[in-house]
């Protein structure tokens, strides 16, 4: 669905924001780009959708086995939806006016325009507030409107750039449900985030990015297995806390219990945070 090969993009001719990034996104998968702020995720997305011209490398979008083209091709572009990180909506227009306007830019007219506008607003559960100005919406509602504007023309490939920034937990869950529902409909989603939990919950595959490069790419389980290290048993024995890395945490706990009374314990399983730490020596949110 999306092929990115050897992508290079520099700003000011000096600093490489994207440095040789290569990945493929398969149809109907949610592909995550996980990394801290400044890792090059948004630049990768901007090049992938044709907003920025790459200094090197290539981006192609198309059906597998079918025709494909660069993202600047209007035909290709009409099959792509983007929800930018910045809220790309007009605050002084109503929700409905916003969605209808963006749908018109996609070439929708007449009954199709009305139906798609209504469907997009219903999908993000803003139909009841469609006649209110966008500036009266909460942060979460604006994010959902931003998402509705990206899907109103029924794209095949959807780019979501940090879609939950500044959103309350309830709206975040609503957005997650929307994204999973879109995948069920057959959409392919490219999702950037610096929240490990989001990538872990939503993404079929995740590319971990840092300093413009992809450090690792696999399923969440695959990344954890390969780079997460062993599970850690943290136990308080005889008033002292012990941290023990182990491939067999249950066996380790049993051994600790034989050595004396086990007052407290917890198990730290490897996750993407640990993967990032192991790959870069830094925390994901540093």
């Amino acid at each position: 669905m999306l092929t990115v090969s050897g992508l290079i993009k520099s700003y000011d001719g000096v600093r490489r924001a994207v440095d040789g990034v290569t990945f493929d996104v398969k149809p109907r998968e949610i592909f995550g780009l996980l990394g801290p702020n400044g890792a090059g995720k948004s630049t990768t997305i901007h090049v992938a959708v044709g907003l920025l011209a790459p200094d090197g490398g290539e981006v192609r979008i198309g059906d597998p086995g079918g025709p494909s083209g660069p993202p600047t091709d209007p035909v290709v572009r009409s099959r792509v939806g983007v929800a930018p990180q910045a809220l790309a909506i007009y605050e002084e227009l109503t929700g409905e006016e916003n969605i209808r306007f963006f749908a018109q830019l996609q070439g929708l007219r007449g009954g199709e325009l009305r139906n798609r506008t209504a469907a997009a607003l219903q999908f993000v559960e803003l139909h009841d507030r469609r006649r209110d100005l966008a500036r009266t919406y909460s942060g979460g509602m604006k994010r959902r409107l931003n998402l509705a504007a990206a899907i109103v023309h029924d794209p095949q490939l959807l780019f979501l750039d940090e879609p939950t920034v500044g959103v309350d937990p309830q709206s975040r869950n609503a957005i997650f449900e929307n994204i999973l529902a879109l995948r069920e409909r057959g959409l392919t989603v490219v999702y950037t985030t610096h929240y490990m939990e989001e990538a872990q919950r939503l993404c079929d595959r995740v590319a971990i990015m840092d300093q413009g490069r992809i450090l690792a790419l696999d399923t969440v389980d695959g990344l954890v297995r390969a780079h997460g290290g062993k599970s850690v048993v943290v136990a308080a024995v005889d008033g002292r806390e012990s941290r023990i890395e182990s491939d067999d945490p249950i066996g380790e706990l049993m051994r600790l219990k034989q050595g004396g009374p086990l007052r407290d314990f917890r198990l730290e399983q490897p996750n993407l945070e640990r993967v990032f730490l192991n790959l870069t020596g830094r925390q994901l949110r540093d």
């Binding site: 572009r77 983007v82 930018p84």
Partner: peptide, 13 residues
């Protein structure tokens, strides 16, 4: 500055 130009540029126009 508010980002709507990005969406305009992303439209097939």
């Amino acid at each position: 500055t508010r980002g709507t130009l990005i969406r305009l540029r992303l439209a097939p126009i």
